[in-house]
Protein backbone atom coordinates (compact mmCIF):
# COMPACT_ATOMS: atom_id res chain seq x y z
CA UNK A 1 0.00 0.00 0.00
CA UNK A 2 1.50 3.27 -1.06
CA UNK A 3 -0.12 5.35 1.61
CA UNK A 4 2.63 6.24 4.01
CA UNK A 5 1.98 5.22 7.58
CA UNK A 6 1.24 8.25 9.76
CA UNK A 7 3.88 7.13 12.11
CA UNK A 8 6.04 4.06 12.31
CA UNK A 9 6.68 2.26 15.57
CA UNK A 10 10.37 2.26 14.91
CA UNK A 11 12.54 4.19 12.53
CA UNK A 12 15.22 1.75 11.59
CA UNK A 13 18.04 3.13 9.56
CA UNK A 14 21.73 3.72 9.11
CA UNK A 15 24.02 6.34 10.49
CA UNK A 16 27.03 6.77 8.26
CA UNK A 17 30.10 8.50 9.59
CA UNK A 18 31.84 10.37 6.79
CA UNK A 19 34.68 11.15 9.14
CA UNK A 20 35.63 7.49 9.19
CA UNK A 21 34.67 6.12 5.79
CA UNK A 22 37.75 5.35 3.72
CA UNK A 23 35.80 4.46 0.59
CA UNK A 24 36.79 0.82 0.52
CA UNK A 25 33.53 -0.45 -1.08
CA UNK A 26 33.35 -3.35 1.37
CA UNK A 27 29.83 -2.41 2.37
CA UNK A 28 28.68 -2.17 -1.24
CA UNK A 29 30.03 -5.58 -2.18
CA UNK A 30 28.89 -7.34 0.97
CA UNK A 31 25.46 -5.85 0.44
CA UNK A 32 25.41 -7.31 -3.03
CA UNK A 33 26.51 -10.70 -1.86
CA UNK A 34 23.87 -10.92 0.86
CA UNK A 35 21.00 -9.43 -1.06
CA UNK A 36 21.52 -11.20 -4.34
CA UNK A 37 20.23 -14.27 -2.55
CA UNK A 38 17.95 -12.21 -0.36
CA UNK A 39 14.32 -11.25 -0.20
CA UNK A 40 14.35 -9.17 -3.39
CA UNK A 41 17.26 -10.79 -5.23
CA UNK A 42 18.86 -11.77 -7.47
CA UNK A 43 20.67 -8.55 -8.30
CA UNK A 44 21.57 -8.81 -11.94
CA UNK A 45 24.88 -8.01 -13.60
CA UNK A 46 24.80 -6.93 -17.21
CA UNK A 47 27.74 -7.83 -19.42
CA UNK A 48 29.64 -9.02 -16.35
CA UNK A 49 32.64 -10.00 -18.45
CA UNK A 50 31.98 -7.62 -21.31
CA UNK A 51 32.74 -4.16 -22.54
CA UNK A 52 30.38 -2.17 -20.35
CA UNK A 53 29.84 -4.04 -17.11
CA UNK A 54 27.07 -2.75 -14.90
CA UNK A 55 24.51 -4.10 -12.56
CA UNK A 56 22.19 -3.65 -9.66
CA UNK A 57 23.76 -2.34 -6.46
CA UNK A 58 21.78 -1.29 -3.43
CA UNK A 59 24.69 0.70 -2.11
CA UNK A 60 27.24 2.73 -4.01
CA UNK A 61 30.30 4.59 -2.78
CA UNK A 62 30.89 8.00 -4.27
CA UNK A 63 33.71 10.36 -3.47
CA UNK A 64 34.25 14.07 -3.71
CA UNK A 65 36.93 16.64 -3.21
CA UNK A 66 35.88 19.67 -1.20
CA UNK A 67 37.56 22.99 -1.68
CA UNK A 68 37.15 25.75 0.84
CA UNK A 69 39.17 28.92 0.64
CA UNK A 70 41.97 28.98 3.16
CA UNK A 71 41.80 25.28 3.94
CA UNK A 72 43.55 22.21 2.61
CA UNK A 73 41.29 20.41 0.11
CA UNK A 74 39.53 17.49 1.55
CA UNK A 75 38.61 14.12 0.06
CA UNK A 76 35.32 12.73 1.31
CA UNK A 77 34.01 9.24 0.62
CA UNK A 78 30.29 9.04 0.44
CA UNK A 79 28.37 5.76 0.61
CA UNK A 80 24.76 6.04 -0.42
CA UNK A 81 21.88 3.62 -0.26
CA UNK A 82 18.17 4.06 0.37
CA UNK A 83 17.52 6.48 3.22
CA UNK A 84 14.16 4.93 4.13
CA UNK A 85 12.58 8.37 4.10
CA UNK A 86 9.65 9.13 6.35
CA UNK A 87 7.97 11.07 3.57
CA UNK A 88 9.11 8.75 0.86
CA UNK A 89 8.04 10.10 -2.52
CA UNK A 90 9.03 6.83 -4.13
CA UNK A 91 6.26 5.13 -2.21
CA UNK A 92 3.45 7.58 -2.83
CA UNK A 93 4.02 7.73 -6.58
CA UNK A 94 3.83 3.99 -6.98
CA UNK A 95 0.66 3.05 -8.85
CA UNK A 96 0.61 -0.59 -7.81
CA UNK A 97 1.35 -0.74 -4.15
CA UNK A 98 4.59 -2.52 -4.85
CA UNK A 99 6.43 0.23 -3.04
CA UNK A 100 5.68 0.20 0.60
CA UNK A 101 6.83 1.59 3.88
CA UNK A 102 6.43 -0.81 6.75
CA UNK A 103 4.49 0.65 9.64
CA UNK A 104 6.31 -1.41 12.24
CA UNK A 105 9.83 -0.25 11.47
CA UNK A 106 9.69 2.22 8.61
CA UNK A 107 11.62 0.07 6.17
CA UNK A 108 10.84 0.93 2.56
CA UNK A 109 10.57 -2.10 0.31
CA UNK A 110 9.51 -3.02 -3.19
CA UNK A 111 7.34 -6.07 -3.64
CA UNK A 112 8.74 -7.68 -6.78
CA UNK A 113 5.61 -9.78 -7.25
CA UNK A 114 3.49 -6.69 -7.76
CA UNK A 115 5.80 -4.12 -9.34
CA UNK A 116 5.07 -3.34 -12.98
CA UNK A 117 8.41 -1.70 -13.63
CA UNK A 118 7.03 1.73 -14.48
CA UNK A 119 10.19 3.28 -13.02
CA UNK A 120 8.27 6.21 -11.62
CA UNK A 121 9.59 5.61 -8.12
CA UNK A 122 13.13 5.90 -9.39
CA UNK A 123 12.21 9.25 -10.88
CA UNK A 124 10.67 10.33 -7.62
CA UNK A 125 13.61 9.45 -5.43
CA UNK A 126 15.98 12.41 -5.20
CA UNK A 127 18.82 10.24 -3.97
CA UNK A 128 19.17 7.68 -6.70
CA UNK A 129 18.45 4.84 -4.33
CA UNK A 130 16.34 2.77 -6.71
CA UNK A 131 17.80 0.25 -9.06
CA UNK A 132 16.05 -1.27 -12.03
CA UNK A 133 16.28 -4.96 -12.72
CA UNK A 134 16.05 -5.37 -16.48
CA UNK A 135 15.68 -9.14 -16.29
CA UNK A 136 12.81 -9.18 -13.87
CA UNK A 137 11.37 -5.93 -15.18
CA UNK A 138 10.95 -4.68 -11.65
CA UNK A 139 12.45 -2.13 -9.34
CA UNK A 140 14.85 -3.08 -6.59
CA UNK A 141 16.44 -1.25 -3.70
CA UNK A 142 18.11 -1.51 -0.35
CA UNK A 143 16.04 -3.69 1.94
CA UNK A 144 17.85 -2.62 5.07
CA UNK A 145 18.60 -6.33 5.07
CA UNK A 146 15.16 -6.96 6.47
CA UNK A 147 15.75 -10.67 5.98
CA UNK A 148 18.90 -10.52 8.09
CA UNK A 149 18.05 -8.18 10.92
CA UNK A 150 15.03 -10.27 11.91
CA UNK A 151 16.56 -13.67 11.27
CA UNK A 152 16.59 -15.35 14.65
CA UNK A 153 18.98 -18.02 13.53
CA UNK A 154 21.68 -15.39 13.36
CA UNK A 155 23.37 -14.49 16.66
CA UNK A 156 21.83 -11.31 17.98
CA UNK A 157 24.90 -9.09 17.71
CA UNK A 158 25.28 -10.05 14.05
CA UNK A 159 21.65 -9.28 13.29
CA UNK A 160 22.49 -6.01 11.60
CA UNK A 161 22.58 -5.13 7.91
CA UNK A 162 25.41 -6.67 5.95
CA UNK A 163 26.97 -3.35 5.11
CA UNK A 164 27.20 -2.56 8.81
CA UNK A 165 28.63 -5.85 9.98
CA UNK A 166 31.26 -5.86 7.26
CA UNK A 167 32.47 -2.26 7.37
CA UNK A 168 36.12 -2.59 8.37
CA UNK A 169 36.45 0.98 9.55
CA UNK A 170 33.30 0.93 11.65
CA UNK A 171 31.84 3.88 9.76
CA UNK A 172 28.33 2.48 9.65
CA UNK A 173 25.85 2.18 12.49
CA UNK A 174 22.40 0.66 12.52
CA UNK A 175 19.57 1.34 14.90
CA UNK A 176 16.23 2.89 15.70
CA UNK A 177 16.13 6.62 15.20
CA UNK A 178 12.72 6.77 16.88
CA UNK A 179 14.30 5.79 20.14
CA UNK A 180 16.27 8.72 21.55
CA UNK A 181 18.29 6.29 23.64
CA UNK A 182 19.47 4.19 20.71
CA UNK A 183 23.11 4.17 19.66
CA UNK A 184 22.29 5.93 16.41
CA UNK A 185 20.17 8.64 18.00
CA UNK A 186 22.85 9.39 20.53
CA UNK A 187 25.63 9.48 18.00
CA UNK A 188 23.54 11.64 15.72
CA UNK A 189 22.74 14.07 18.48
CA UNK A 190 26.33 14.33 19.60
CA UNK A 191 27.86 14.84 16.18
CA UNK A 192 25.84 17.29 14.18
CA UNK A 193 24.17 14.64 12.03
CA UNK A 194 22.98 15.69 8.61
CA UNK A 195 20.00 15.00 6.39
CA UNK A 196 20.82 14.63 2.74
CA UNK A 197 19.10 17.17 0.58
CA UNK A 198 16.74 18.71 3.12
CA UNK A 199 15.08 20.81 0.40
CA UNK A 200 13.52 17.66 -0.97
CA UNK A 201 11.43 17.38 2.19
CA UNK A 202 11.62 13.62 2.27
CA UNK A 203 12.65 13.40 5.93
CA UNK A 204 15.31 10.75 5.44
CA UNK A 205 15.72 8.29 8.28
CA UNK A 206 19.35 7.56 7.46
CA UNK A 207 21.68 10.24 8.74
CA UNK A 208 25.24 11.22 7.95
CA UNK A 209 27.87 12.44 10.35
CA UNK A 210 29.99 15.07 8.62
CA UNK A 211 33.78 14.99 8.60
CA UNK A 212 34.98 16.56 11.84
CA UNK A 213 37.05 19.66 12.10
CA UNK A 214 40.66 18.99 11.38
CA UNK A 215 42.96 19.05 14.36
CA UNK A 216 45.62 21.39 13.12
CA UNK A 217 46.76 23.38 16.07
CA UNK A 218 48.12 26.83 16.00
CA UNK A 219 51.75 27.53 15.48
CA UNK A 220 53.84 25.70 17.97
CA UNK A 221 57.48 24.84 18.22
CA UNK A 222 60.01 23.43 20.62
CA UNK A 223 62.50 25.46 22.56
CA UNK A 224 65.93 24.46 21.43
CA UNK A 225 68.37 23.77 24.22
CA UNK A 226 71.24 22.94 21.93
CA UNK A 227 71.75 23.86 18.32
CA UNK A 228 74.82 21.95 17.25
CA UNK A 229 77.03 19.04 18.20
CA UNK A 230 79.40 21.19 20.18
CA UNK A 231 76.60 22.59 22.33
CA UNK A 232 75.23 19.16 22.86
CA UNK A 233 78.56 17.76 23.94
CA UNK A 234 79.06 20.54 26.41
CA UNK A 235 75.61 20.32 27.84
CA UNK A 236 75.30 16.57 28.05
CA UNK A 237 78.89 15.58 28.67
CA UNK A 238 78.69 14.36 32.20
CA UNK A 239 74.99 13.97 32.75
CA UNK A 240 73.61 10.83 34.25
CA UNK A 241 70.72 9.87 32.06
CA UNK A 242 69.54 6.89 34.00
CA UNK A 243 66.13 7.35 35.46
Amino acid sequence: MTCLPDKTDKKLGLLIDLDICVGCHACAVNCKEWNTSGITGPMEDIKPYGDDPSGVWYNRIHSYEFKKPGEVDRTVYFPKSCLHCEDAPCVTVCPTGASLKRSEDGIVLVNPDVCIGCKLCSWACPYGAREYDTTGGVMQKCTLCVDKIYDETIPEERRVPSCVSTCPAGARHFGDFADPESNVSKLAAANDARDLFPEMETKPVNQYLPPRKRQIHKEKSLNHKVSNVKDAMLRWAKLDFTG
Binding site: I39, K47, P48, G55, N111, D113
Partner: peptide, 18 residues
Protein backbone atom coordinates in the same frame (compact mmCIF):
# COMPACT_ATOMS: atom_id res chain seq x y z
CA UNK B 1 26.49 -14.93 -19.65
CA UNK B 2 25.35 -11.58 -21.01
CA UNK B 3 23.31 -11.17 -17.89
CA UNK B 4 24.36 -12.80 -14.68
CA UNK B 5 21.80 -13.45 -12.01
CA UNK B 6 23.71 -15.09 -9.21
CA UNK B 7 21.64 -15.92 -6.21
CA UNK B 8 19.09 -18.20 -4.69
CA UNK B 9 15.55 -17.48 -5.72
CA UNK B 10 12.94 -17.57 -2.98
CA UNK B 11 10.45 -20.35 -3.15
CA UNK B 12 7.55 -18.33 -1.85
CA UNK B 13 5.94 -15.04 -2.50
CA UNK B 14 7.38 -11.83 -1.22
CA UNK B 15 4.31 -11.27 0.90
CA UNK B 16 4.64 -14.57 2.67
CA UNK B 17 8.32 -14.11 3.09
CA UNK B 18 8.00 -10.61 4.43
Amino acid sequence: PDVLQYGFKKNRSFDEYE
